[in-house]
Amino acid sequence: MFKTTILSAAAALLLAVPAFAEIEIHDQYARAATPTSKTGAAFMMIRNTGDEADRLIGADSDAAARVELHTHLEDANGVMRMIHVEDGFELPVDGEIAMVRGGKHVMLIGLTNALNHGDSISVTLSFEKAGDVVVDIPVDLERQDHGTMMNHGSDG
């Protein structure tokens, strides 16, 4: 009887554990506009392979004094403007966030060092449910994709 009660309690605990988002990061790279730029950006594809929707809510890096989530939006005059997205980006189940040039990206403000081609920086992405995910991001100053990856699934 005691063994059955313990097994039932253990099974109940296992079933009560919520499903967490599982985050995959790929195709990541960072760049600055010029060697003397004080700002840079990181781009990547973020995929949720878990059973639960999540939200990218922030980012941090020793590579910059401040790190923000940004996107570009068209204003009333048809001009594209970069804005800080304080509430982050939705990441649906089996969906992706396309962090690309001309779209959503991680903005690095007040670079602590130049972003030199071939170097690597570490960025911590913070998710509402999955928590912090540390990503090593190569600096690629030659890449010319200009947002061409925007058709990769849902970009939340």
Rank of each mutant, 00 (worst) to 15 (best):
T4K: 01
D60L: 00
V134L: 06
E74R: 15
V93Q: 01
D94A: 15
I25E: 05
A130F: 00
D87R: 10
L15K: 14
V67C: 04
E86I: 13
T4G: 01
I23F: 00
R143N: 05
G40Y: 12
F89S: 05
L141C: 13
T49H: 08
T34Y: 08
N151F: 10
N77F: 04
A63L: 05
R101K: 09
D51P: 03
Q144D: 12
H26S: 10
S122E: 11
V85R: 05
T4D: 04
S8E: 15
F2Q: 08
V139C: 00
I25S: 08
M1I: 00
K3V: 10
S122M: 01
G58W: 07
E68P: 01
A41F: 07
I83Q: 13
R143K: 10
E52A: 15
A12K: 11
T49V: 14
I137G: 05
I23N: 02
H26R: 04
A114H: 03
D27Q: 13
G102M: 05
H152V: 07
A32M: 03
D94M: 06
E68C: 07
V93K: 04
Q28R: 12
V106I: 15
S120P: 09
L141R: 13
S61T: 15
H105N: 15
V85F: 03
R66N: 15
E22Q: 15
A65F: 05
G110Q: 07
G147P: 01
R31W: 08
D87P: 00
L73E: 14
I137T: 03
A53Y: 02
H26K: 09
G153D: 02
Y29L: 14
H26F: 06
K104R: 14
E86Y: 13
A9D: 02
I137A: 01
A33Y: 02
V67I: 13
Q144W: 09
E96H: 13
R143A: 08
G118Y: 01
E24A: 07
